[in-house]
Design a protein around this nucleic acid. Sequence first.
DNA 1: CGCACATATTGATGAACGTCAATATTGGGG
DNA 2: CCCCAATATTGACGTTCATCAATATGTGCG
Lengths: 115, 115
Amino acid sequence: MTSLPLLEPATDTACCAPAVPSLGAAEANDRAAVFKALADPNRLRLLSIVKNAQGGEACVCDLTDPLDLTQPTVSHHLKILVDAGLLHREKRGTWAYFSLVPGALERTAGLLESL
Amino acid sequence: MTSLPLLEPATDTACCAPAVPSLGAAEANDRAAVFKALADPNRLRLLSIVKNAQGGEACVCDLTDPLDLTQPTVSHHLKILVDAGLLHREKRGTWAYFSLVPGALERTAGLLESL
DNA sequence: CGCACATATTGATGAACGTCAATATTGGGG
DNA sequence: CCCCAATATTGACGTTCATCAATATGTGCG
């Protein structure tokens, strides 16, 4: 899409303040996608386990037991976190090791303050 | 619930690392609730408009036009943001003014780094 | 009082989500 | 080569969610 978000002049009827530069629709969609990945308690726990794991990485077998979920469900959540750019997936042999993408959490935190 | 998350000794079959202290289920639920409120592009835009509004506050009429949503839908989103502790609602006369809860965004950002 | 305006609530509808059971895929070892 | 273990994918099911139209609530004004 080529159209930029327009800032219309506010109709100063009574209470309405003049329109103010704010987040565009496309930007808002991108940011919401990341927060959507964080909007599930089990995914937060997965991130926490990976972050605090020895060596900074954990395989699926490390992650299935602490959560009370089946293996396919854990795999599903991990895929969402990888797609959101929060986790890195590396396959070594039969096992898949997950680690935090460096700086991803900090960048995501920055999305909040730069609203 | 009174049970604490147990850390079982890891079964050192092959890949699995010893269990590591991580986010409990209850804590994860609380944090996910806040991110759930942020996991919608229109709500992010609402926060952005309120934050950048002159005086730090905006009424519903300021928020209905820029988004392409009906008034009830905007009201619904605002309620979610208020319930999440991100927005403050103050009714003055006929109008309802919304402002950021001081420090709420920073605190939420902190939830990410303290995983 | 009663109208007009700003906001909130309700009910309904379609889409997205979390979960599991079943199955497929991939890689290592006898 | 075939079996087994680890992970991924598929399909189905119930729940939650975003949205709107319609309606209710509440507040200032004449």
